[in-house]
Amino acid sequence: MSHTAHIPSHRKPRQRASKSALRAGVAGGFLSTIAVAGAAGPAQAEPVTQTIEMPTIASNFSTAAAASAQATQQLALDIEKQADQDAAAEKAAKDAKKAHAEAVRKDEAKKKAEAAEKKAKAEAEAKERAERASRSTERTTLSASTGSSGSSSSGSSASAPSSSSNVSGSAASIVAFAKAQVGDAYVSGGTGPNAWDCSGLVQAAYRTAGIDLPRVSQAQSTYGTQVSLDNLQPGDILYWGGAGSAYHVAIYVGGGQFVGAQNSSTGTVQRSMDYDRPTGAVRVL
């Protein structure tokens, strides 16, 4: 028996290949981890530096964007303001043109109205002159006829009562004078020769017959004898209202008609008693 067979071996037993591979893998993995960690360290430092600089860039960009937006908004406001001003100016021009046209139209209308008024006034004056000339002729004729009537009455006084001839002559004179004033104007307080009020006309008509009546209608309505409206004679005084408180008077001219200075609208007119029925009448002659 060999001596070496009983001596224990000091060499380690051979490890299995799988265990060797595992240990190698672990070691390799550890070393790889260290390598990766080492490599990762420097790579992370650079992004930190870039992260610090980016807020400054973003802030500058935001400020520029805000300024641009504000400028754009101001430009839009300026454009809108200018548009409003242009519209206002255009409207003002149109209004001025319209006002001018209206002023021209009114001026032309005023001139036409003034021309028409002047023409009407001239025609009225011409007509009034013609009427005055006609009335003057009638009055001249009336005076002549009254004089001749007076002479005839004087000549026939022996054959007829003087009172009867005087009444007829006076009545004719009063009626003729009243009719000659038809067309004259009515003026309150008027006593002629071309404008009358109601009592002024009656007073003037009776004055042609030599009779001086009271001036106002109230007194004229009681000056004489009250007579019925069914028994009137030319020359009688008609009155409206109560006797002594009459507000209007006129002269009965025969044929159911009267002559009176009515009002400012109609002037002196001859009308039927049916137009405005009087209240009563007095006979002075």
Rank of each mutant, 00 (worst) to 15 (best):
Q226D: 05
G280M: 04
G242R: 12
V253M: 06
W240D: 02
G280H: 08
D230L: 06
L238T: 07
D230A: 13
T268N: 15
P278K: 00
V253R: 02
G242E: 13
S221Y: 01
V249P: 00
Q220T: 05
Q270V: 15
L238S: 09
V269H: 12
T225K: 15
I211R: 09
Q257A: 10
D276C: 12
L238A: 13
R277Q: 10
L238H: 09
G280K: 05
Q270H: 15
S228A: 13
Y252I: 01
A219L: 07
W240I: 01
G260T: 02
G280I: 03
V249H: 03
G224S: 01
N231C: 11
H248Y: 07
S245D: 15
P278G: 00
D236V: 01
D276E: 14
I211E: 09
D276Y: 13
D212P: 06
A250D: 05
N231I: 10
V249C: 04
Y247D: 12
G244S: 09
I211Q: 09
D274T: 13
P278Y: 00
G224D: 01
S217Q: 04
A250L: 02
T222A: 11
S217M: 01
Q218N: 09
V253H: 05
V216R: 11
A243P: 14
D230T: 12
V269E: 12
T268C: 15
S272D: 11
L238C: 11
G235W: 04
G244L: 09
D230G: 13
Y252N: 02
I251T: 00
A243F: 14
S217Y: 04
P234D: 05
D236H: 04
G254E: 01
G241F: 10
I251H: 01
W240G: 01
